[in-house]
Simulated scan of single mutants.
Amino acid sequence: MAGVVGGAFLSSVILVIREKVNSKNFRNYFHKRLGRKLEITLNSINEVLDDAETKQYQNLDVKNWLDGLKHELAEVDQLLDVIAIDAQQKGKIERFISGYINRFESRIKVLLKRLNVLAEQKNRLGLQDTTRAAGNDGVVSSSFFYESVMYGRELENQEIIDCLLSDSGSDNQVPIISIVGPIGMGKTTLAQVVYNNHLVMEVFELKAWVHVSESFDLVSLTQSILRSIHSSAADSEDLEILQHQLQQRLTGKRYLLVLDDVWNKNGNMWEHLLLLFSRQSSGSRIIVTTRDKEVASIIGSTQLLDLKQLEKSDCWNLFVKHAFGGRDVFEYPCLESIGKKIVE
């Protein structure tokens, strides 16, 4: 398995393996302690995959570690498929009487031992858990867009851009466009694409992007907006001073504000904040991304985009881009079959 395969793909493979380990087929063959040991080892490895993916380009030992991990995960996944097929062909009593239980158990223990060796090597390689310092889902978003291609959201992208570039709207109320959908639907990615569109960049004099944490207050949110507009601002802890500074920055400007990953349902707080954006706001826009339609309603959205599941072909193309890093998927027939299971 030469070449580089993304850590996101290996994390997905681990997720599939964990689901199989928790299936009835696995529980019928093995004691639950064996399954628990396998899960603990997989979790330990999964924690450092992002760091390993970054470091493999500078450290050959890390790349070799990832190559070895790819091989062992493929072996585990294949064995679990064999067990599932055997379970379908035999009844519980037949499985117990036959020698298949011991054969499968010895093979799974060998693979667990190899995975444990890999897990023990992560400290020697300097691999760290990069997920703990982040926000709600281990990710804090930014306005910077890393993708060169967006899959399956072309219509929504154009709809938002049309709204941003239109002259419709009130001088007393800035239009709010809410992008709503469950985790993983591409809300933030869509907002990033729009935010960095060349036409949008030409039209708006001021742009600000703020990732809204699950727990925040008016002071911290106002500070974040000010910092996004002007990095040297927002030193004060006084809300009145911060609001005055923000109002000064916005007056007479056509601005675009993105509030990403909003959870808070405090209507009074949102009303108090949005008052700042209701004066002389001609041509300005606010984009909100949230998982909850109730949040979109409380904020007073003037337009709501409810993102649906991508088409299967778009899901596969997106998966291939992240998992295989631009390499030919046909070079990895075993991993390709696992990937298709994940997408389905």
Rank of each mutant, 00 (worst) to 15 (best):
L80A: 08
K55Q: 14
F96W: 14
L49W: 00
L49E: 03
R114P: 03
V48S: 10
K92F: 15
V82P: 00
V48G: 02
F104D: 03
V76I: 15
L80F: 05
K63T: 05
V76Q: 00
G35L: 06
L38Y: 01
I101T: 13
L115H: 07
N102R: 13
I83N: 02
K90W: 01
Y57D: 06
N102Y: 09
A74C: 11
H31S: 08
I108Y: 05
I40V: 15
Y100H: 10
L49A: 09
Q56I: 12
K32A: 08
L111W: 09
K90C: 13
K109S: 12
I85R: 04
R95H: 04
W65A: 04
V62C: 07
K90R: 11
D81L: 12
Q78Y: 01
R103A: 14
L79I: 12
L79T: 13
S106M: 12
L49C: 13
L34S: 02
K32M: 09
H71M: 08
I45G: 04
L112F: 08
E75T: 04
I101S: 10
I97E: 07
Q56W: 01
L34T: 07
G99W: 03
L69A: 03
D86Q: 05
I40F: 07
T54H: 02
E39D: 08
D67I: 10
Q89V: 09
H71F: 11
L34C: 03
N59G: 05
R36E: 13
L115W: 08
L111R: 07
K92Y: 13
A74H: 00
K63I: 04
Q58R: 13
V82A: 10
D51G: 07
L79C: 03
I85D: 14
L66F: 03
R103P: 03
N116Y: 05
R36H: 09
R36C: 04
S106P: 00
I101W: 00
I101E: 10
K113G: 07
L111P: 04
L42V: 06
D51F: 02
K37N: 13
A84K: 05
L38E: 00
N64L: 13
H31F: 04
R33I: 15
N116M: 15
D81Q: 02
K90P: 05
K70M: 06
Y29R: 06
K109T: 14
N43L: 11
K90Q: 13
S98M: 09
L66H: 02
Q56A: 10
Q58H: 12
K113H: 14
A74W: 00
Y57V: 15
N64I: 12
D77R: 00
L79W: 01
E39F: 01
K32I: 14
E53K: 02
T54V: 15
Q78S: 15
A74L: 10
R114V: 05
N102S: 14
I45C: 05
L73G: 06
I97K: 06
G99Y: 01
H71V: 14
I108D: 02
D67F: 05
G91P: 04
E53H: 11
K37I: 02
L80V: 10
I40E: 13
E75I: 08
N116W: 00
V110N: 07
D81K: 06
N116V: 15
R33A: 13
L34G: 08
I93K: 12
V82C: 01
S106E: 15
I85G: 02
E39G: 01
G99P: 06
N102C: 08
Y29N: 05
A52H: 01
Q58D: 14
T41F: 01
I101D: 00
L111K: 11
K90L: 15
